[in-house]
Amino acid sequence: MEDVIVVIGGGPAGMEAALSLAGRGHKVYIVEKTNALGGHLARWDRLFPQQDPAQDILNDMLNGIKNADDKIEVICNAQVQSVKKRMRGLEVMLSNQKMIQADAVLVCCGFELFRAERKEEYGYGIYDNVLTSADLEERFRQKKVLCADGRVPEKVAFVHCVGSRDEKVDHTYCSKVCCVTAVKQASEIKELYPQTEVFNLYMDLRMFDRYFEQMYHKAQSHYGVHFVRGRLSEVSETADGRLQIKTEDTLLGRPMKLTVDMLVLMVGMQACAQTEELSEKLDLKVSSSDHFFETKDLFLKGNYAHTKGIFLAGACTGPKSLPDTLQDARSAAESIHRYLTA
């Protein structure tokens, strides 16, 4: 008899884990709360570090799932209502009243983007030309990044760490991917509009992964992006609808101000809204410091929840890049397989 695994969340982690598990002969149900698979990936244009089109990666995964339809069943517009422990395995009840007898549950509910409105002083939702990194990505997909009045922006500033490393919003952790995304997007603006001046306001540049430093180097030397070590204090609108921004150039030790046509807020990752609910239903532990799920340990049990039969993968256990998320998903599949065959 084949083992049954319920995967909660149909983003990259859930899809990749489902593919790995199906490849090992298990039956997988993906429970996705929206009407389609893909998660945040579906909204992105190109991916760091080598500008791969997000759609290509997503299509490969979707095709994989389609080809494995004897093993993977996708249930969209559904959420987990309850999970009960049974003699063998878990009884998972969905919001559409479907009941699944599962041998294991994998939680891949991912992350949410920080709501930029919470940094009131940055004026998101108030000033027309303040965008988030996700809004900008949407515009890249349209191949046009214009100001509210239709002009090509002459000056664009990127603000790193919006909703990350910030006690004021109770997010003291680093979201990991915003620095490199800012470098990517700054370079893409220069690709699109070589005459536009681009400024990146960072606290630290965390170019930790393969090819990241090269991207940064190219942004500086090839694209001429200005990197300013300093955090944005406040934004306001000038009489002609541009944005005055203030920071300190901490490497010069002097306050600095400049006027830009567009401001991009690099919004960080936060635990998704379902985290608390799922933690109650599935008896999962949530970290009091960053509010993401806790795993049994950070080494050999990095995909194990504290509850038997339940596993975790992807950005629901803390910010991760897409490559890291996919690896984590495969590693979770391996952990589940070992658990089921032990």
């Binding site: 180097h217 500086q220 030397s221 306050p255 600095m256 101000k257 006027t259």
Partner: peptide, 24 residues
């Protein structure tokens, strides 16, 4: 305060053109 709107960026441009490693 450094007012970047009024800053003279000409030297930056000239040096970067003649010695690109300046931007590194």
């Amino acid at each position: 305060v450094i007012d970047l709107d009024k800053a003279d960026m000409s030297l930056l441009r000239e040096i970067a053109a003649e010695e690109p490693s300046f931007l590194h």
